[in-house]
Simulated scan of single mutants.
Amino acid sequence: MSADTSSRSSRQDAFDPFLQPELFEGVRSRRIIAFIIDAFVITLLTLGASILVFILGVFTLGLGFLLYAILPVSVALIYAAFTLGGPSASTIGMRAMGLEMRLWYGAKPYPLLAAVHLLLFWFSISLLTPFVLLVSLFSDRKRLLHDLILGTVVINSAYHRAYTREHSAAA
């Protein structure tokens, strides 16, 4: 077996639901609660940003008010890019629920991928609402449609940290 094939097969097993089922226990239900928390946080951030846009609109004699058209989407994309694409690889809601996102081979997502993940989520929810959630019932890693497309996995962060600590100490 070549070195390339060996490294590829080890990356494929980064989050194996059969070897480590604890990584995926309760992920689906906690993800729903995390979504509600994140929606609340984004709403608060949008309200704060709308005050700034109002002040900008007054100082620009009404021109700044045009930003209201893109404000909620912009706030949500920036929120996802800096939290999900940040060092903790999770949004505030995901952190509260003990979840984090990883790429299929174990790496943390980067800001652009986090923003695309959010856009693909909105797109899939608006077109295929019930079917997006049904995909997770048949996925061994409890991934949604946009997770499958982008190659991301949502896992239990506490178990992952403990597992990583335990195996790095043994090595």
Results as ranks from 00 to 15, higher is better:
residue 95 R to D: 04
residue 90 S to N: 09
residue 132 V to H: 05
residue 31 R to L: 07
residue 97 M to P: 04
residue 91 T to E: 05
residue 54 F to M: 13
residue 122 W to H: 09
residue 38 D to Y: 06
residue 110 Y to I: 07
residue 46 T to I: 10
residue 155 I to H: 00
residue 16 D to V: 02
residue 66 L to G: 14
residue 44 L to D: 09
residue 72 P to R: 11
residue 92 I to E: 08
residue 18 F to Q: 12
residue 61 L to Q: 15
residue 41 V to C: 13
residue 133 L to G: 15
residue 144 L to M: 07
residue 78 I to A: 14
residue 61 L to E: 13
residue 15 F to N: 02
residue 122 W to F: 15
residue 158 A to T: 06
residue 140 D to R: 08
residue 109 P to C: 00
residue 28 R to L: 05
residue 104 W to Y: 13
residue 98 G to T: 06
residue 36 I to H: 07
residue 80 A to D: 15
residue 40 F to Y: 12
residue 102 R to W: 01
residue 126 S to L: 13
residue 138 F to A: 14
residue 25 E to L: 11
residue 101 M to C: 12
residue 29 S to M: 08
residue 68 Y to W: 08
residue 104 W to C: 01
residue 120 L to Y: 07
residue 34 A to N: 07
residue 58 V to P: 03
residue 43 T to Q: 09
residue 145 L to M: 11
residue 147 D to W: 02
residue 119 L to M: 14
residue 142 K to M: 09
residue 155 I to N: 01
residue 88 S to L: 13
residue 111 P to R: 02
residue 131 F to Q: 06
residue 75 V to R: 09
residue 84 L to Y: 06
residue 55 I to E: 12
residue 150 L to A: 06
residue 48 G to P: 11
residue 77 L to C: 06
residue 143 R to H: 00
residue 39 A to C: 13
residue 151 G to F: 03
residue 44 L to F: 15
residue 22 E to P: 02
residue 61 L to C: 13
residue 118 L to W: 14
residue 19 L to R: 13
residue 42 I to R: 07
residue 139 S to D: 14
residue 61 L to A: 15
residue 43 T to P: 02
residue 22 E to Y: 02
